[in-house]
Amino acid sequence: MDTMDSDAFAGFYQRSARPLWAYLARVSGDPALADDLMQESYVRYLCAALPASYATEGEVAARRYLFRIATNLLRDHWRRPRPTSIDDLPEELFAATSNSAQADSQAILGPALAQMRPRDRQLLWLAHAEGYSHREIADVTGLASASIRLLLFRARRKIARLLQNQNQTQLRLQTQQAALENTTSAPTQRSQP
């Protein structure tokens, strides 16, 4: 059992903070909450002793341990009784602070993620954004390794359907908009000598 020194922590923080914030922000749908939970995750990480696997796996194990703390904090947050549920938060809350590129990504993934259950969001993010294996996801979430495959398969199928529907809707809207632009510009072109 060991702990990090200040310099080692600064380096680890620089490498791991942004992915952790992205995970918390996208899964919770609330950037302010992500800020709070991220800070709390690091403080708890520093207060606790490093996992035993740190000796063999190094920073990979430390990072996984950090994600585990963050996942537990998210779960505690969802379990805590409060006047409004995190699932009821408007998506605009997240989109309001993002730039245009992020808004594009949010416009595609955000509504689909909002329709998923919190646990499915966590599983999908860990598997597809972080690239964790089923065993690693089981380690982070505390779920049984055997059930991860099925849960992930179902969640992936569901979000893929949602993303496809969304893409089709967007494509249809773009086609309609293009057709509308054509019809409005055609008479003006004809009237020109």
Binding site: S6, F9, A10, Y13, Q14, A17, R18, P19, W21, A22, A25, R26, P31, D35, M38, Q39, Y42, V43, L46, T97, S98, N99, A101, Q102, S105, Q106, I108, L109, A112, L124, W125, H128, A129, E130, R156, I159, A160, L163, Q164
Partner: peptide, 26 residues
């Protein structure tokens, strides 16, 4: 489809993160 959507979202969200000082957390 899903992996590409999540990877894009990860890159963009990670760039938008406002990080606190590591010294403060320490």
């Amino acid at each position: 489809l899903v992996t590409r959507a999540f990877q894009t979202a990860r890159t963009e969200s990670a760039a938008a993160a406002h990080l606190a000082s590591p010294g403060l957390l320490w």
